[in-house]
Design a protein around this nucleic acid. Structure first.
Length: 761
DNA sequence: ATTCGCAAAGTTTTT
DNA sequence: CTTTGCGAAT
């Protein structure tokens, strides 16, 4: 076991290569870790080793990209050497902390707000308005992207120069400074700023840099292949006097280049830090040789990488399968059937299976098939909870309380719930604020002085301000209490309760969830500055962090979301030109390599079985198109794989030949008697066949819904009724959906729920 | 002030 | 087929 406390015994189970990494203490260390090579184990053992050798835990800093990774590391370290105050967390959280302490050095106050992407976009929109530039030929999005790119490259608003002749560049050069000013005036930062500000801080304050370098003498960076230039600069600045820097990563698993990750950081690590010790973890403990060889052969086609030879002790296992289906529906059905069969026979559990796809939109067809087979699943979709309107609303109240300059928050809630403060009124407030350089809240306080406002509007605004002031008195209360008063004072709760819609009933339920989260937080942190801490946490958290691994369900997710995970059986779907590689990546060879890495990551998630599939016809965005198999498929060791040949038109189907397609449908499908084929034909002939039955006013009788009943919902799919409450019009059912929808409440008198199997009304 | 409806566009997303 | 944002109607 790993609970003993001597250096000797805790490392007993490690291989010589792993021990080499664990025992290398001083100086730069690069761990090139292939998929499934026990990297996290090595990292945690090494940190434990540092501690056991007498290095104060406070001098150790471990940086990760996700909270999940940080938690995982923390838990494992806890098992090796309990209760050591090693700072572990994401880059962003680390920077947020540092920035709190040194906010004034970059023109912020310590209670600054962290804008999420949505908030940032709003701020950017305002900046565009102020700069009086008409965005005719570009979108707000591309401006945002350009600014984000610049920040990741450490280019500040002052130093940004448009590339000569770049139209967008010229716009950005004008807008970026306005945007940055808006943020500073609001005492706010965007995600990129967290890194940029800290990097700037370290660059411009040598004494501070030195202090921190000394404080964090031993630094570990996980997933180094995904660091961007800002992160690189931060790590670099903290490793000058004490270059005890350990980075781990795998160039072959770099899939966030589009977000500014710079593959050169890892590729050139050895040049950046002299006397680097390099350890290669090439022993894979996860996959069968079959899977590993296929993945390896694919990735060999990349040029920008470091040679690695992966090996495993496992038995050969099943061959990798390449399965071609006539249509995307057939593909989805086959997956569902395969899973159903092996679960029924007792060979596998639901949680052994994962289905991967390149884009989120592809999950729908899989979901449909799984639903038909009554197979429970979960869709990993990134942000959900904290992006819901009601949660964002309530958090906006808190944000404004914590940082009265947070204009985006004010604009969000000043009329939510409706307070008769409309667009015109807000416009006048904005003008007033800009003229006198006030925050929106300050402007609102002066509503009585604004002549252009009607008396009615001014009163409404004044009422809002006094509500704010009343809430501000409770700012030191436990969060649970604060949010509770917030729900009352703002009329948010009354507003939702008064509503008749199911949607609002659900919102009310989500509100409760936030209260629960706040309660848990209160129990955890019983100190000053609770609110600020809470807001920081919620801003830097994603739903994926709360993933419950215990539940027995099939997992559906994008290839990006799959990184770091493993499953006994993996379905890699829609491996078609245009999707994988994605069409937007096809031109550029660097991007094409990233797509190949994405496929590599997907393949190497599989432990026992890997099933790669594609369809000859794919229904996507309401259209049916003939597909072309992915060019990556020809880069796999086909001779040793099991290949299910396309059912029809092996040759023509590989070209984008519409005439052939029509002919195929005309002649071949008509002669087929198979059910799925018949249905597919129907679809092409009558596109309307997909559409829902037109809704009729008639509903399934409310009193017939019972707890335990399986029901269908047009949007959320199937689920089980877990609770029925209330009477007459207020009779409400709580449904636990099999899919990603989770639990939702419905007023039975007017919701589209029907018992499963109850066809049409 | 709010709601409704239509047009437009639709990788990936650790924070 | 979806989702989302903005403009017109109540």
């Amino acid at each position: 076991m790993e609970s003993s406390s001597t250096a000797q015994s805790i490392h007993d189970s490690l291989t010589p290569v792993q021990l080499d990494a664990v025992n290398y203490i001083d100086g730069p260390l690069l761990i090139l870790a292939g998929p499934g090579s026990g990297k996290t184990r090595v990292v945690t053992h090494r940190i434990a080793n540092l501690i056991l050798r007498g290095i104060p835990p406070r001098q150790i800093l471990a940086l990760t990209f996700t909270n999940k990774a940080a938690d995982e590391m923390q838990t494992r370290l806890e098992r090796l050497v309990p209760r050591q105050p090693v700072w572990m967390g994401t880059f962003h959280r680390f920077c947020a902390r540092l920035l709190r302490q040194h906010a004034s050095l970059v023109g912020l106050q310590e209670n600054y707000s962290i804008y999420d992407t949505q908030d940032s976009t709003k701020a950017l929109k305002q900046a565009v308005e102020v700069s009086e530039i008409a965005l005719t030929h570009t979108s707000l999005d591309s401006i945002a992207q350009a600014i984000s790119w610049a920040k990741n490259e450490l280019i500040s608003a002052d130093t940004y120069k448009a590339r000569h002749g770049s139209a967008i560049g010229n716009l950005v050069a004008q807008i970026y400074p306005h945007y940055q000013r808006r943020l500073l005036e609001s005492n706010a930062v965007d995600f990129d700023d967290l890194l940029l500000h800290v990097a700037t801080l370290l660059q411009e304050n040598p004494e501070l840099r030195q202090t921190l370098d000394t404080r964090f003498r031993y630094i570990c960076v996980d997933e180094y292949q995904d660091t961007n230039s800002a992160q690189y600069a931060i790590v670099r600045a903290l490793s000058v006097d004490y270059p005890n820097l350990m980075v781990t990563g795998d160039p072959d698993q770099s899939i966030y280049g589009w977000r500014g990750a710079n593959l050169n950081n890892i590729l050139e690590f050895e040049q950046d830090y002299p006397n680097v010790h390099v350890v290669r973890l090439e022993h894979n403990y996860r996959s069968t040789p079959n899977i590993l060889r296929a993945a390896d052969q694919l990735i060999t086609h990349n040029l920008r990488r470091k040679e690695k030879s992966l090996f495993t002790d496992r038995d050969e296992g099943a061959p990798v399968r390449l399965l071609t289906y006539p249509s995307s529906r057939d593909e989805a059905d086959a997956i569902a059937e395969h899973i159903a069969t092996s679960v029924e026979s007792g060979q596998r559990r639901l949680r052994d299976f994962a289905v991967f796809y390149r884009v989120n939109a592809l999950s729908r067809s899989i979901e449909n098939a799984l639903r038909v087979h009554n197979l429970p699943y979960r869709v990993i979709a990134g942000l959900e909870f904290f992006q819901r309107k009601e949660i964002k609303d309530l958090l906006a109240y808190l944000h404004l309380l914590n940082n009265p300059n947070n204009d985006v928050a004010l604009l969000r809630i000043i009329n939510t719930p409706p307070r008769k403060i409309g667009k015109k009124t807000v416009e006048q407030l904005t003008i007033h604020a800009r003229r006198y350089h006030l925050s929106m809240l300050e402007a609102a306080r002066e509503s009585g002085l604004i002549e252009t406002l009607t008396k009615r509007s001014a009163t409404a605004v004044a009422k809002f301000v006094s509500m704010y002031d009343r809430l501000a008195l409770a700012i030191e209360d436990p969060l649970q209490d604060l949010i509770a008063s917030l729900l009352d004072e703002s009329n948010y709760r009354t507003w939702l309760e008064a509503s008749e819609s199911d949607e609002d009933a659900n919102r009310l339920a989500n509100t409760e969830e936030l209260l629960t989260a706040a309660k848990e937080f209160d129990e955890q942190f019983d100190q000053e500055g609770r609110l600020e801490e809470f807001l920081e946490q919620t801003a830097l958290v994603s739903d994926t962090d709360m993933l419950d691994e215990e539940i027995d369900r099939i997992t559906l997710m994008t290839l990006h979301a799959a990184k770091g995970l493993e499953f006994p059986v993996v379905f890699l779907t829609a491996v078609e030109e245009g999707l994988l590689p994605h069409e937007r990546s096809r031109e550029d060879s660097e991007q094409l390599e990233e797509e190949r890495r994405l496929m590599f990551v997907g393949m190497t998630r599989a432990e026992d079985e890997l099933r790669i599939s594609l369809a000859q016809y794919r229904d996507f965005r309401g259209q049916r198109n003939m597909t072309v198999p992915s060019s990556f498929l020809s880069q796999l060791p086909r001779e040793e794989m099991e290949i299910l040949e396309p059912v029809l038109f092996q040759d023509t189907a590989f070209h984008d030949d519409h005439e052939a397609a029509d002919e195929w449908i005309e002649t071949e499908f008509r002669n087929q008697s198979s059910e799925s084929a018949a249905e597919t034909l129907d679809l092409t002939t009558h596109p309307d066949a997909w559409e829902e039955t037109p809704s009729t006013p008639q509903r399934y009788p409310a009193h017939l819904f019972k707890v335990g009943m399986i029901v269908d919902h047009p949007n959320y799919g199937s689920g089980t009724i877990v609770e029925v409450r209330g009477t007459a019009k207020k009779r409400t059912a709580t449904v636990d959906f099999f899919g990603s929808a989770g639990q939702r409440k419905f007023r039975l008198a007017h919701c589209p729920l029907v018992p499963a199997g109850f066809d049409e009304i």
